[in-house]
Each structure stands twice: as structure tokens, then as C-alpha cells.
């Protein structure tokens, strides 16, 4: 008995365990902490879990969803091909759009009133035109130019005289998406650049670092911190936005899905196929964004935040520690109970 009381923390004694183990009133540091009980929060959580379970159960069992059709199509060649087209459209428009956007951003920031006005006008025009209107416009223009046997000065690659209609419409779609995206990218990049502290450019100038190098090495990497979250949004928006090129009969994901359910009438499962792919692609982009952001955060914090993996490990460690702590008072209490 005496030995167990020695090892028991004084705070572990609860009223009623006997006069031989009084609560230590004097020293709060040795008292056991009882966390607040969030009963309402727990109840709400439980209710939500039940609702979600019900929904998932419905998804799985209700025949309306036709999961068999989903399974037949989700990895079918047509759909995989269409996903590839969607990815290509997204990649081209992202890369070209942000390249053009970066140039526009620096034109807009330039001290030359001509250049900055040109950039401002571009942004004004292309933000004003709905993407779908622009796409249809380019689509018709491309058809027209092909009949006449012309190439377009912007991209001879897309517009060579002997190009078949697919390359022609693909090119029109890429141009449309790029020009639209560039206007938004320009503002995002400009926002990032003006967020870089002025002293950074001044220090670079004082060191005699060449102008282009100042931008590439000093300004842009720091601007990336502000650019990336919004750019991530834009690219994800664009991924889904490519679905509007269905108006040009390009075989991207949404267009193909429509073609297929037009034929077989299985609308819901085919929309699910498209949804599933968009969700997967968006998730991949989000993960990529996380790591790119992390890369550009180097030096921004004294101690970089942990990666999800590190966080998971840390979480498990805290769980273990908590479990160990919870077990601790139980050990001395048992012999106390036994002594009764």
C-alpha cells in the first residue's frame, strides 16, 4: 500500500478513494487536467457521420447510378483518350497562358506608358469577352482561314495549310484558352510582383545585378509565394473550363461523355465518369501545388512547416503519448481499489 501511494501522482487520487490519499490542494502543477467535454460538438459530428454514411450507402446501392456502366466506361479507350485531350488543352493553355501573362504583367508594370497601356488594353478586352464567345469566334475564323488556305501569324504550327480539321480546331481551342488565360495570369503575376518588397529590387540594383537576372532570380521566386495559391486556382479552373471547348466538337472529356450518353442514354453513370476523372485530376493538381508552394517557401520561415508525412508521424506520436498518459493513472488506481 505504501509503495503504491508513493508512485501515484497526488492528483490521481479522486474523492472517495480514502483518507490516506487526499487531493494535493497546494500544487496545481501536479493536478490531473480534465479536458473540456464538447458534448454538442460530438453530437453534431455523429449526426453528420450518419448522414454521410446514408448518402454513401445510397450511392452504392441505388440502381439509378448504374455502377456497372460506370465501370465499363471509366477506363475505356475513348474516355482515356478524351482525358488525354483535356490534359493537353490544360497544359498548353497553362504554359502558354502564363508565359504570355508574365510578359503582359511586366509590360503593364513598365515605365513606358505605351507598353503599359497596351498591356492594360489587352487585359481589359480579354477579360471582357466570355471564353465561350471567344472560342466560337476562333473556331469560325479557323474554318475560314483553312478554306482560304492561310496560316495565322500567331501559330504557324497549328495553322499550316494542309492541316486537317482536328489540328485546326485544337489549335483554335488552344489559342482561345491561352489568350483568355493570359489576361488573368497577367494580373496574378503582377499581383505577385508588386507584393515583393521594394528593398529587394533596390538591393539587386545596388549590387549591379543585370536587369533580367533581377527579375528571374530575385523578384519572380519571391513573387511566386503570392502567385501560386491563385495560380493553382486558375489552373484547376482551367482544367474544368476546358469542357467548354465541347462547343467546338473537340474530343475532350465532357464532349466524349456527351457523345456516348447521346448514343446509349446512360446519362447519370457517364456524368459520374466525367466527374470522377475531374476529381482525380484536380486532386493531383492540388498535391502538385502543395509541393511547388513548399519549394518556393524556402527561406520564408525560420522553421519550414512539416510535410503531410511528417505531420502524420507527429500525430501518431502524440496519440501514443496521450494513450500512455491516459493509462498512467489507471495503474496506481487499481491497487487502491484492490485494497478495499
Amino acid at each position: 500500500m505504501a509503495s503504491t501511494t508513493d508512485t501515484a501522482p497526488p492528483g490521481a487520487a479522486t474523492p472517495g478513494t480514502g483518507p490516506e490519499a487526499p487531493p494535493a490542494a497546494g500544487d496545481p502543477a501536479s493536478l490531473k487536467v480534465v479536458p473540456t467535454r464538447h458534448y454538442a460538438r460530438w453530437a453534431a459530428g455523429a449526426a453528420v457521420v450518419v448522414l454521410i454514411a446514408q448518402f454513401v450507402h445510397g450511392l452504392a446501392t441505388n440502381p439509378v447510378w448504374e455502377w456497372q456502366v460506370f465501370r465499363d466506361y471509366v477506363f475505356s479507350e475513348t474516355i482515356v483518350q478524351a482525358v488525354w485531350v483535356t490534359l493537353q488543352l490544360t497544359a498548353y493553355a497553362t504554359v502558354l497562358g502564363f508565359l504570355l501573362g508574365t510578359v503582359l504583367a511586366f509590360l503593364r508594370l513598365s515605365r513606358s506608358p505605351v507598353l503599359s497601356t497596351v498591356a492594360w488594353t489587352y487585359i481589359w478586352i480579354f477579360r471582357s469577352i466570355p471564353m465561350i464567345v471567344q472560342l466560337v469566334f476562333w473556331f469560325n475564323l479557323s474554318a475560314l482561314y483553312k478554306e482560304l488556305g492561310f496560316g495565322i501569324p500567331f501559330g504557324p504550327v497549328f495553322w499550316s495549310v494542309d492541316s486537317n480539321s482536328i489540328i485546326g480546331t485544337m489549335g483554335a481551342a488552344v489559342i482561345g484558352l491561352t489568350l483568355h488565360q493570359a489576361a488573368y495570369a497577367a494580373e496574378i503575376v503582377r499581383g505577385g510582383v508588386i507584393a515583393v518588397e521594394h528593398g529587394q529590387l533596390e538591393a539587386a540594383a545596388a549590387l549591379g545585378i543585370p536587369r533580367l537576372r533581377q527579375i528571374r532570380r530575385i523578384v519572380l521566386p519571391q513573387a511566386m509565394r503570392a502567385i501560386l495559391p491563385t495560380a493553382g486556382n486558375e489552373i484547376i479552373g482551367l482544367l474544368k473550363g476546358t469542357s467548354v471547348v465541347y462547343v467546338m466538337s473537340i474530343g475532350e472529356l465532357f464532349y466524349q461523355v456527351q457523345v456516348i450518353y447521346g448514343r446509349n442514354g446512360r446519362v447519370i453513370p457517364l456524368l459520374l465518369v466525367a466527374t470522377a476523372w475531374y476529381v482525380v485530376l484536380t486532386s493531383l493538381l492540388s498535391v502538385a501545388q502543395y509541393y511547388v508552394e513548399r519549394r518556393y517557401a524556402r527561406g520564408a520561415d525560420r522553421t519550414p512547416p512539416p510535410t503531410p508525412l511528417q505531420r502524420a508521424r507527429r500525430f501518431i506520436r502524440t496519440l501514443r503519448a496521450a494513450a500512455a498518459q491516459r493509462n498512467q493513472p489507471v495503474i496506481p488506481l487499481k491497487p487502491l481499489g484492490d485494497s478495499r
Partner: peptide
Amino acid sequence: QRTHIGFVFQNFNLFPH
């Protein structure tokens, strides 16, 4: 010309990245 002239700022202006 500036490469011949070193400048040290009040608030350092080191490149944080």
C-alpha cells in the same frame, strides 16, 4: 558602375529565398 560601389542598407535587404 554600381559593382564598384558597395551599399549596406539599414534593413539589410538580404534575399530571403
